[in-house]
Every structure is written in structure tokens, then in C-alpha cells.
């Protein structure tokens, strides 16, 4: 065990935990933040995606001790009110979620994509959003990312 100081959603959090523990379980069990989901534990499905210094990262396979100097953003901190990030707005407009379980991860992966590429192509989306959705919402995810890109680009021109 070790006392770690983490920066999560702009707040400083202290946890007494084995540094080898994956970030996912520190979020869910030590900090009670359950928006980030467990799906596979082997970085395959992406349900656990968070941002580490702005980069979409699968937290189930990430030792918490490796990110104590990083800025971590989870689904709970993506937007101040939980619904105003362009990805969230577009997700609602397109009614993307079905069961919704994978959507925290899909949204975090898509938000990171949009930050890196404000006007992504279908190929960019296919490369960067590789999370599993068993309900099969991919078509709407793709459409919603394009909508979010339009919402992000200021009127009158490309970013």
C-alpha cells in the first residue's frame, strides 16, 4: 500500500492503495466513481476508457502508480453538467445508447478523437474508436461524432 495523490476531473484525490492496482478499480472501488465500466480487464473492449493527459486510455490495464503525475478525466468530469460536451449533445440527438453500458467508454474515446482531430473522417473514427458495443450502436456513434464535429467547429469555417 502507498498513499497516492491523483488528479481526477480537476480535483486532487488521495488514495491508500497498492500502486499496481489498475486505475479502473481505484476509480470504482476506492473512489466510488462507477461511471467508468469493467468489461474485459485486458484492454480489449474499451468500456473502461478514461483520458490520461487528454489521451484516451484503457484504465483496466493501467497501474494507478503510473498515473499519479497525470491529469485524469473520467466520464463524470467530461463536462461540468454531465451533458454539454459536444459528444454528449450529439449522442443525445442521435439517440446513440441502447443498453448504454459501453457508452462511457465510447464517449471518452470519441471525445479524445475530436480533441485530436476536430473534423475526423470515417477512417479516423474507425482507427480511434475501437471499443466494443454489443448492442450494435456503431452506425449512430459514427453519425454522432460527425455531428459533434460540426457543433465544435465555429460557424463560418473549419477549425
Amino acid at each position: 500500500m502507498a498513499m497516492l495523490k491523483l488528479s481526477i476531473n480537476g480535483q486532487s484525490r488521495e488514495v491508500d492503495v497498492d500502486p499496481e492496482t489498475p486505475l479502473l478499480w481505484v476509480l470504482r472501488e476506492w473512489l466510488g466513481m462507477t461511471g467508468t465500466k469493467y468489461g474485459c480487464g485486458v484492454a480489449q473492449c474499451g468500456a473502461c476508457t478514461v483520458h490520461v493527459d487528454g489521451v484516451a486510455t484503457r484504465s483496466c490495464s493501467l497501474p494507478v502508480g503510473s498515473v499519479d503525475a497525470s491529469k485524469i478525466t473520467t466520464i463524470e468530469g467530461l463536462s461540468p453538467d454531465g451533458m454539454s460536451h459536444p459528444i454528449q449533445v450529439a449522442w443525445l440527438q442521435h439517440e446513440v445508447p441502447q443498453c448504454g453500458y459501453c457508452q462511457s467508454g465510447q464517449i471518452m474515446a470519441s471525445a479524445a478523437l475530436l480533441a485530436a482531430k476536430p473534423n475526423p473522417t470515417d477512417a479516423d473514427i474507425a482507427d480511434m474508436v475501437t471499443n466494443i458495443c454489443r448492442c450494435g450502436t456503431y452506425q449512430r456513434i459514427k453519425a454522432a461524432i460527425h455531428t459533434a464535429a460540426e457543433l465544435t467547429i465555429p460557424a463560418g469555417g473549419k477549425a
Binding site: T74, I75, M83, W91, P97, G100, Q103, S104, I107
Partner: peptide
């Protein structure tokens, strides 16, 4: 039931 699926709630 969509909104709470967008923010982890």
C-alpha cells in the same frame, strides 16, 4: 432513459 447513459450516472 438516455441522459444518464451519457454521463456515467
Amino acid at each position: 432513459d438516455t441522459v444518464d447513459k451519457l454521463n456515467g450516472k
